[in-house]
Amino acid sequence: MMGRVTQLSKLSRLTHAENAIDGRLDAECLSGSCAHTQLQSDPWWRVDLLAVHKVTSITVTNREDCCPWRQDAAEILIGNSLKHNGNSNPQCAVIFP
């Protein structure tokens, strides 16, 4: 996937936002293929697809080695607004266990 990504923070030097769209399927966090924020309230990760696209599906993969509940209630918002840090975009899904 091509795009420009950013996230609120990163857990370690291995957990860059870009890792989430690198095409690798390894879900071991410390392998360098996962994006991960620090433990904080209201963390976020965002991708700019660099052009207008019709989004028909999204796949979110949690890290395999720990903490599956950390994505519980995560909201998927899709749109082109950065107002309120992107939170003004329509909610398309919520991740439930």
Rank of each mutant, 00 (worst) to 15 (best):
T59D: 03
V55A: 01
G79F: 05
A74M: 15
I21A: 00
E75A: 12
S41P: 03
T6Q: 09
F96W: 05
K10I: 14
A35E: 02
C34N: 04
D26K: 14
S81C: 02
R63Y: 12
M2I: 10
K54T: 13
V52P: 00
P97R: 13
H36A: 11
I76P: 03
G79L: 03
Q91A: 08
A74K: 09
I95P: 02
C92M: 15
V55L: 01
D42F: 10
L11G: 02
G32L: 07
C92T: 07
F96H: 09
D42M: 06
C29L: 15
V52W: 04
S41W: 06
M2L: 07
R4Q: 10
V47N: 00
W45F: 04
T15W: 08
R46Q: 09
R46T: 02
I21T: 03
P97Y: 13
M1Y: 15
M2E: 13
E18Y: 06
T6L: 09
H53Q: 02
S9R: 14
I21V: 12
L25S: 12
R46K: 05
W69R: 12
L39D: 08
L14G: 07
D22L: 08
L77H: 14
N89R: 05
H36N: 09
T15P: 01
S41Q: 07
V52C: 00
D48G: 01
I78D: 00
G86Q: 02
T61W: 07
L77Q: 08
S57G: 03
E75C: 06
L14Y: 15
I76E: 00
R4C: 11
H53A: 00
S88Q: 12
E18V: 07
T56R: 08
P43A: 00
D22W: 14
T59W: 01
E64H: 13
D26R: 14
C92H: 14
P68T: 08
E28Y: 15
T6H: 06
E18T: 11
K54M: 05
I76G: 04
T56W: 09
M2V: 10
Q38E: 11
L25Y: 15
G23S: 05
R46C: 04
D42H: 11
S33F: 15
G3N: 05
A51Q: 11
S33D: 09
T37K: 05
R24Y: 15
L77T: 08
S81V: 03
H16D: 11
N87K: 15
E28Q: 12
G32I: 10
S31C: 10
D65P: 07
A73D: 11
D48E: 01
S12I: 14
